[in-house]
């Protein structure tokens, strides 16, 4: 698993930023007048677009392949969840950004744990 502070800080910052910005973008786009499934779909697409920008912005310093998993998952989750909530009740941008950031942190942690688990699953064939 990644243990170097430089890369952990980069991966985490990208996910936090993508989560927060996606949530704010979803709040600005979706309203209570929207049907929930359409709002969630648009929120997810917004999250993918924000994540793509984040991956490009952070990619040179931290490597794109490793950034894309937590950042893209964060964007999709943040967009869907915040859009779903906004179709039921209005939300302040600051609250949305905090929820998006929390989702970024949770996704980063989940991917990090998955990395520990999957890296232990290499295979060796004995002739």
């Amino acid at each position: 698993m990644e243990t170097r502070p430089y890369f952990i800080a980069g991966d985490l910052s990208c996910s936090l930023l993508v989560g927060g910005v996606t949530a704010v973008a979803a709040i600005a786009t979706v309203s209570q007048a929207w049907p929930m499934p359409a709002a969630m779909l648009v929120g997810m697409l917004l999250g993918m677009a924000v994540a793509a920008v984040g991956i490009l912005a952070f990619g040179r310093c931290f490597g794109m392949i490793e950034l894309q998993m937590p950042a893209m998952l964060t964007g999709m989750l943040s967009g869907m969840i915040v859009s779903m909530i906004v179709t039921r009740s209005p939300m302040a941008s600051s609250t949305g950004a905090a929820i998006g950031g929390a989702l970024g942190l949770a996704t980063f942690a989940a991917v990090w744990i998955a990395d520990v688990w999957l890296r232990a699953k290499g295979e060796r064939w004995t002739p």
């Binding site: 392949i65 998993m69 991917v111 999957l118 890296r119 699953k121 290499g122 295979e123 060796r124 064939w125």
Partner: peptide
């Protein structure tokens, strides 16, 4: 014939 596959990040 495969000898070894080692994962460096997830299984990606």
């Amino acid at each position: 014939r495969l000898v070894e596959v080692r994962h460096a990040y997830l299984d990606v």
